[in-house]
Design a protein around this nucleic acid. Sequence first.
DNA 1: ACCAGAGCTGACCATTCAGTCAAGTTTGAT
DNA 2: ATCAAACTTGACTGAATGGTCAGCTCTGGT
Lengths: 219, 219
Amino acid sequence: MVQAKPADRSGARSEAREETERLILDAAEKVFAERGFGGATMQAIAGASGLPKANLHYYFTSKETLYRRVVERIFTIWLDAAATFETSGTPEAALRRYITRKMALSRSHRYGSKVWANEVMQGAPIIQDYLETTLRDWTDTRIALIEGWIASGAIQPIEPRWLLYMIWATTQHYADFAHQIETLNQGTPLSDAQWDNATETVCTIILRGIGLDCARDSP
Amino acid sequence: MVQAKPADRSGARSEAREETERLILDAAEKVFAERGFGGATMQAIAGASGLPKANLHYYFTSKETLYRRVVERIFTIWLDAAATFETSGTPEAALRRYITRKMALSRSHRYGSKVWANEVMQGAPIIQDYLETTLRDWTDTRIALIEGWIASGAIQPIEPRWLLYMIWATTQHYADFAHQIETLNQGTPLSDAQWDNATETVCTIILRGIGLDCARDSP
DNA sequence: ACCAGAGCTGACCATTCAGTCAAGTTTGAT
DNA sequence: ATCAAACTTGACTGAATGGTCAGCTCTGGT
C-alpha cells in the first residue's frame, strides 16, 4: 500500500513535500471555511489547489484527516494570539494588545476563523477535547486575572467571562462576517485605515466599558 | 404532476398543511444550522422531522426551496428585533432595548442565528439582495441616528458602524457559539440567571463604553 | 548512466445524494 | 355513501461523492 509518510532522507524532497502539503491545506481551509465539512468536496479542494483529486489522497489519507490538519493548524495560530494576553502588565496594556492581535488575525486569517466557527457550530466534533482542556484552562486563568483587577479596583466589577466572550465575538466577527461587512462597505474590503479605526473603536469601547480610560477622553 | 400549491378551500386542510410545513421548517432549520446547506441532507431533515423523505418533496419542491424558506423566516424574525432599535427615546433606552432583545433572540432562536451565520460565511448566495437593500438601509438610518447622538454630545464620539457590528457580534455569539459557551460552563446550558447577567454585562460595557453611565458627564 | 523509491494521475468503484414516481390512503364536501 | 382531490410513501434513478489503484514520470544518490 502506498504510504503518506516516507522517510525524509532528502532535504529537497521533504521541502517540496511540505510546500505541497501547505498548498493543499490552504485550499482546503478556504473550501472548508465557505462550505463547512459536509458541504466541502475533495473535488472542490482539488480545484482550488490546482491539483488532481487523487493527488490530495496521496498526501492526506482521507477528507477527515485533511480537515483535522486544517483545524489543528488554526488552533496553533489561535494559541499564539492567546499568548499575547499576558498575565503581566496593566489591564489596559494586556487587553489592548490582545484585542489588537485578534483583530489583525481576523484580517490575515479570515478562512481559519470561519473554519473554527463552523466547527463549533457543528458541536465541535473534532476539537471538543481542546475546548475542554486547553481553552478551558486558558479561560480560567484569564478570568482569575481579571477578577484580580476587579478586586484591586483597577477596573469596574463586571463578569470576566462575558467580557472575554465579547472580545472573541467582536474580533472574530470581522472574519466570519467579512462578506456582510464588505457588502455594507459598498462591496469593498475594509481599507487599512478602516481596520485601524475599527480596532481602535473596539479597544476604546471595551476599555472604557470596564471603567478604564473613562476620565481621560473628555477633558 | 403533483403540485405543492393546492387551493386552500378547506380551513382544516390548510391548517394541517401549515402545521406540517412548520414541522419540516423547524427540522430543516436545525439541520441546516448544524451542517450548513451543502452538508445537510434531505434524509437527515426527514429523520429530524419524523417524516419520510419523499414527503418533504411533496411540501417543498427542492432542497434549495426549503433552505430559502428557512432563511426567509429567519430574516423576518431579525427584522422584528431590528424594529426594537427605535429612533425615538434616549440612547440608553434604545440600545438597552435592542441589546436585550437580541440576546433573548439568541437564546430562543439559536438555530436561526446559526443558519444566518452559515449563509453569510458562504458569501450570502441567497440573501445577498437583502443585505444590499433592507440591511443596508436599516444600518444607514441607525448610523445617522447615532451620529446625531454624538453631535449632541449625548455619547462619546465613536464610529457608529463598528458599534453596531460589536452589538451584532456579541449578541449573536451566544447563539452561534452556544456549544463552546456550554462547554466552558461545565457542559451545561446557561441558566436564567446567567443569561440575565450576561445581558446586563453586555449592556453595561457597551453603554459605559460609549460614554453613557460614566461618572463624568459632558457639560 | 542507472535505478529504487517518491511523486503523480486517469480511470475506476461502492456508496450516498437529491429528486421522481406510481400506487396507495385519508379527507371533506356533497 | 361517494368521489375527487389532497396527502403519504417505499422503491427507484441518474448524478455526484470519497476513496482506490495500477501504472506512469520524475528525482537524487550512487
